[in-house]
Amino acid sequence: MASHISDANEAIQASGESTFEKAKKKAQEQIDHLFNVSLDIAVTGETGAGKSSFINAFRGEENAATGVRETTTEPTPYQHPKLPNVKLWDLPGIGSPNFKAKTYVKKMDFKKYDFFLIISATRFKENDLMLAEEIQKAKKKFYFIRSKIDIDIRAEEEKKTFNREETLSEIREDCQRNLKDLGNPPVFLISSRNLSEFDFEELVSTLTSELPEHKQFALLQSAPVTSVAMLEEKVVMFKKVIWAAAILSGGIAAVPVPGLSFACDTAMVMSFFTRCYHTFSLDDRSLEKLSERVNKPELKSLKKAPLLKELAEASVLRMGGSAVGEFLCSLVPVAGNVAAGVISFSMTRGLLENGLSVLADEGRKVLREAGLE
């Protein structure tokens, strides 16, 4: 019992609060942020810059219409296939006949978006600068993306003097020269055909560092897994909220209602595992897309759904074994309730840590098979 109490005290300290009640309130906020927070990303730029291609690549789905002509006539939301609370908005291209720069801002409801991605396939132009200035006035964040870098690289490879790093540096510096009046903001070089190359991970890292914590959860869960480094960031995020899930479990176990703790713990653990499973791109659809992207057909056979089922079954057995002890403890006034809460806290934390470790290891194996270490 002493070790369990020590574990509980450690979790309260991890919450940054002084009492269990305060820690429980903060834990509920953390879990709500993990599962329910919304994120609205505005993707804009001139016609043909590659806005829709970027949205398709980020979501892992090809729903946004692409083309050399303006294909978007009004702000169009594209829901993330795994996280319905995350939307990428394809905004009409600024500078097109129907959306002049001077009237563009009035037609777009800027306040609904968390931040803006301004995309250009060449150098950033006057319309892009005007848009950035208006976004600044609205007190929103914006980030510049130079798209279609893979096409530029292929074109330069034909030259005898080709040097990949020098070419990338020249492209970046050319963009930044056009943005000097905005204080030389960073420019992220990206290929929507392969987000594993160039600056996509740096973009995600920058966004994560500048978003409020609850929005960081939504961004990291929705961003595609492009390397082991990206996977590790997601693992760290889930590790940070295990204490919260465990504290909520402990609070519920202290209520002397038969079956309540078991039902709530089962729902909590399975929701956590399922979210990890999809966030690490272990579902069949993600594996199929990865197989196509890296041209390795064998990845399609790496079915991970049985793993999730096995984790669920093992967890339910362990929780069922501890539920009887929790209930008997909770029948003892005051001290028994505390004991039941501590047992449930320790059990839930152990299950979540083990499940996260198993799923993270599977994610690492898949990425190694795909050559994305």
Rank of each mutant, 00 (worst) to 15 (best):
S3Y: 10
A8Q: 12
A8G: 11
E10F: 14
K22P: 02
E29N: 12
I31G: 01
H33P: 02
L34Q: 03
N36S: 13
A49H: 02
A65F: 04
V68K: 12
R69N: 12
T71A: 09
T72F: 05
E74C: 07
T76P: 01
P92A: 05
F99L: 07
K102Y: 09
T103Q: 15
D109T: 10
D114F: 10
F116D: 00
I118M: 03
T122F: 09
K125P: 00
E126F: 05
M130E: 12
A132M: 09
K140E: 05
Y143D: 07
E157P: 09
N163H: 15
I171L: 15
R172C: 02
E173S: 14
Q176C: 00
Q176I: 14
N178Q: 15
G183P: 08
G183D: 10
V187P: 00
I190V: 15
L195W: 11
F198S: 04
D199Q: 07
D199A: 04
V204M: 06
T208D: 14
S222K: 04
P224H: 08
V225G: 02
L231K: 03
F238Q: 02
I242R: 08
A245G: 10
I247P: 03
L248T: 01
S249N: 14
P258V: 10
F262V: 11
T266S: 15
A267M: 13
S271Q: 11
F272L: 06
F272N: 05
F273E: 07
T279I: 06
S281T: 11
L287A: 03
K289I: 08
R293P: 00
A305P: 01
E310Q: 09
V316W: 10
L317N: 08
G320Y: 10
S322F: 00
E326W: 03
S330M: 02
P333K: 10
G350V: 06
L352R: 02
N354D: 15
A360N: 05
A360F: 04
E362W: 09
V366D: 01
E373W: 12
